[in-house]
């Protein structure tokens, strides 16, 4: 079947088997490998992407179900050469170690901040409670999201001078 959607602002159309999971569509068909997968039971949340701005587990959405919708992956977080404050915050506050859960965590954080620009610790913890991290113990992720909240206009132009 043919599906069309917007991925990171770009309109794409592809021919797929109906059973293709959105995570496989993103990774294997579009070759956007920043979205990961880590379980079979919709528990781990490493596959989180934004669908029309809301975080969803892309292992539990068919690519066919995303037809006509807008998907944002980690590759779409930075605009131009400018990192999203969330990306900057994760670097500033050591919100990642192995980097595997990081894309999903950052996308959830982005969606949270879009709705609630000044979340408290509890709200951040609740927002990421459907996603597992084995490395960080979560506290630095919470700090990273807070950093992003406190620096809404943080910018990094790739490889150049930084303003923090």
């Amino acid at each position: 079947m043919q599906i069309s959607m917007t991925v990171n602002g770009e309109d794409i159309t592809r021919e797929i088997e109906p059973r293709v999971l959105l995570v496989h569509f993103i990774r294997d068909v579009l070759r956007l490998t920043g979205t990961h997968w880590g379980c079979d039971t919709s528990n781990c949340g490493t596959c989180v992407v934004l669908m029309d701005g809301l975080p969803v587990k892309s292992c539990t959405v068919l690519a066919a179900m995303a037809d006509g919708h807008a998907i944002t992956t980690v590759e779409g977080l930075a605009t131009g050469g400018t990192l999203d404050p969330v990306q900057q915050g994760f670097m500033e506050e050591h919100g990642l170690q192995c980097g595997f859960c990081t894309p999903g965590m950052m996308l959830t954080a982005r969606a949270l901040l879009d709705r609630n620009p000044h979340p408290d610790d509890g709200e951040i913890r609740e927002a990421i409670s459907g996603q597992m991290c084995r490395c960080t113990g979560y506290a630095t992720i919470v700090r990273s999201v807070k950093w992003a909240a406190e620096h809404p206009a943080a910018q990094e132009t790739t490889g150049e001078e930084v303003t923090a």
Partner: peptide, 21 residues
């Protein structure tokens, strides 16, 4: 010191085994 590996990870540019084709 901020980590040298972070810029690739926060951009989704890590290279894990399943990313290899």
């Amino acid at each position: 010191l901020q980590r040298k590996e972070d810029p690739r990870f926060v951009r989704g540019k890590g290279n894990y085994v399943d990313d290899i084709v």
